[in-house]
Design a protein around this nucleic acid. Structure first.
Lengths: 154, 154
DNA sequence: GGCAATTAGATTGCGCGCAATAGAATTTTG
DNA sequence: CAAAATTCTATTGCGCGCAATCTAATTGCC
């Protein structure tokens, strides 16, 4: 027998034991849950997130939206074009600083907010979490994300 | 003033309060953390997951791998072709049931397992979680995923 | 045996997610 | 003030993730 590197139990961890895989699976399960709820609004989940940002504060730059969501222009530029095509937002260069593209809600985009409330409620129901459970889990997940981001090059 | 639908605080929930967004962000942070670790092995994170499945048990059908990871053939077929191109797996039709494509590790694929151990260790370190914290969070996230999946059509 | 239903996998099309690059506008610096 | 560095957005290319569709193989049913 030639020697093997994974003698003495030295093998990669089993899939099911890994927190990372659990989060990966949860993220997929969430977008699958959102999909039928967002379909009537004509939105994907990332598009819905952009709309949430704009409903909170209208007329933001691409960069500001990206900072909020952790997405870059490579993702947002085409996504915002699709929202514009759908008539939900408008994109205009800032007159002060021509580098900026300001994203604003159209009337149609503003009106969509009322329907989004039902989505929030439906999701909360689907998770079947108590408020305390939801907040506890959320804060722990956010803490983990924070620790991971600290160690990133930038 | 015309009436507004979102009077009386009826607005979509703020981004930061949402568990879903926390998980969405954590998933991105995780793949960003994995990326530099997996690059030397020539793997993406989903490819790494497939390899984990095969290191646990070699010679599985596409469907078996997909069930384990929650992915369908639309995702796996091209992914497995890339692994085959990289010389890590081979794909052969099952002689008993010609519908099945059995995925097996090549020698190179088997040998990669030893390097993967370091990835597991590095990630565990990056999360800065105690074992208890990790397991607790993992189980809660898995429970949430389970509740969400229960409500899916199938 | 023979036809319908099922199963497995591949393919196509679309929307992220991100690295890398490019280009225009602005700010900094000498 | 001019050159250099920085900032902001868009574009390209690649790899998922998934719905929808297709083909081939197998199983069920009569």
């Amino acid at each position: 027998m030639t020697k093997k590197k994974q003698s003495r139990g030295e093998a990669p961890a089993r899939l099911e034991t890994q927190l990372c895989f659990a989060i990966y699976g949860a993220a997929h399960a969430l977008t699958r849950t959102y999909k039928p709820l967002l379909e009537p609004l004509g939105l994907t989940y990332p598009q819905y997130l952009v709309m949430l940002v704009l409903w909170e504060e209208d007329d933001q730059s691409v960069r500001a939206i990206g900072d909020r969501l952790g997405l870059d222009s490579g993702t947002l530029s085409p996504l915002l074009k699709r929202l514009e095509q759908g008539g939900l937002v408008s994109r205009k260069r800032d007159s002060q600083d021509e580098r900026l593209v300001r994203i604003s809600l159209t009337q149609k985009g503003q009106d969509l907010a009322s329907q989004a409330i039902d989505v929030t409620r439906a999701i909360a129901e689907a998770t079947q979490c108590s408020l305390e459970e939801m907040e506890g889990l959320r804060d722990r997940v956010r803490a983990l994300t924070g620790r991971l981001q600290e160690q990133q090059p930038t």
